[in-house]
Amino acid sequence: MGKNIANTTHTFLFCDGGSCQKAGSEKVVRAARAYLRNNDLWDTVHTIKTRCNGRCEDAPTCIVNPGEYWYKELTADKIIPIVKSHIDNNLPVEANLLYKKEWDALKSNREIAPFKPKPFELKDDKELGECFITKGFSSDQYLYPLFLYLLENPKGVTLKMAHLKAMPFTEITAVNYAKTYTLELETATDCIPLTIAGVPKEDKELQKSKISSTEYFYQKNVNQTGIRFKNKFGEVIGIINFDSIDNLAWKYCTKIQLQNASQDLISL
């Protein structure tokens, strides 16, 4: 029988993402749960392991409710006083806080400046010729939303995969991302796999099929825009072409995927 969460007074959400695991999150969780069990608090305090909560530099982390208190750089020794303070006094241990609602900024000792794509640069590309080009993001957190947007806004968008003929994106009927590493583009008669998640280093086939580089380009002489996907070995996996710089999906790419990195591109 599961825990009756209607009886719980506090919830501790421990990040169990890769960075937190490497920093010792499992020891933190075990210490907290042992304390709750041994002090007859198991039925009134709930602990949850979550996926990555986006603060890898502050690992291991934990969020405590009520109050939405964010804790950083936890250890097995630090978590017990934190648990006790919340349960006994409904108060945080401020020395270990990363953030609480009253603050207007994070208190991180390891803050990493967010990465932003560089502005477009004019290059003489071996395959594309003279064009403006920049790199975007290649994680599944960007690629999956990209393909979903193209599914919903396919007008003037063409997909060309290695060893396959070019096809209008209007022929894509669904975008599925249910497999561990692979996104699938479905058509009425076919399924096109794209490896977009982090893959094991020892799996050479997956490494070869994984999109590791996402390049956005603009060929001014023909008013052609597009996206080129490559693997870690520099081999082209596929290319998406847009019919013009005014294409709706291209404008989405420059605004959302590239965070306005190309807002002055037309004047170049």
Rank of each mutant, 00 (worst) to 15 (best):
A34E: 15
R30K: 12
R37K: 15
N89E: 13
S19D: 11
W42F: 06
T44A: 13
K22M: 10
T75F: 03
I80M: 01
H10R: 03
I87E: 01
S85K: 04
K72R: 15
P60F: 02
R55F: 15
H10T: 06
H46E: 11
N65Q: 12
V28G: 07
V28C: 05
H10G: 02
P81S: 03
H86R: 06
R37W: 03
T75H: 03
S85Q: 06
T50P: 01
L91M: 14
D58F: 02
G24T: 09
A59D: 10
W70S: 09
N4P: 00
E68S: 15
R55M: 13
D43S: 12
T8Q: 05
A23H: 08
D16A: 12
L13F: 13
T44K: 15
A32C: 15
T44V: 15
A6P: 00
K84P: 04
G17L: 12
T9L: 09
G54L: 13
P66F: 04
P60N: 08
G54Y: 12
E68N: 14
K27E: 13
N89Q: 13
W42M: 04
A59G: 09
D43E: 15
D58G: 00
I79M: 02
C20A: 08
T47C: 14
T11Y: 00
R30I: 08
A32G: 09
T44M: 13
H10M: 07
E57C: 04
G17N: 10
V83T: 12
E26I: 14
R37I: 11
Y69M: 03
C56Y: 09
N38F: 06
T9N: 06
C52N: 03
I63T: 10
L91Q: 15
V93C: 07
T11C: 08
S19R: 12
P81N: 02
K49Q: 08
L91D: 05
N38R: 14
G54C: 12
K78I: 07
R55W: 14
S25D: 11
S25I: 15
Q21S: 04
R51C: 10
E94V: 11
D88H: 05
T50M: 05
N89L: 11
K78W: 00
G67D: 10
Y71G: 01
A6M: 13
D88K: 09
T9Y: 02
W42D: 13
C20T: 08
Y69A: 04
Y71R: 00
W42N: 09
D16V: 00
N89F: 14
I63G: 02
T61A: 03
T75S: 14
V64S: 05
A59I: 07
P66R: 02
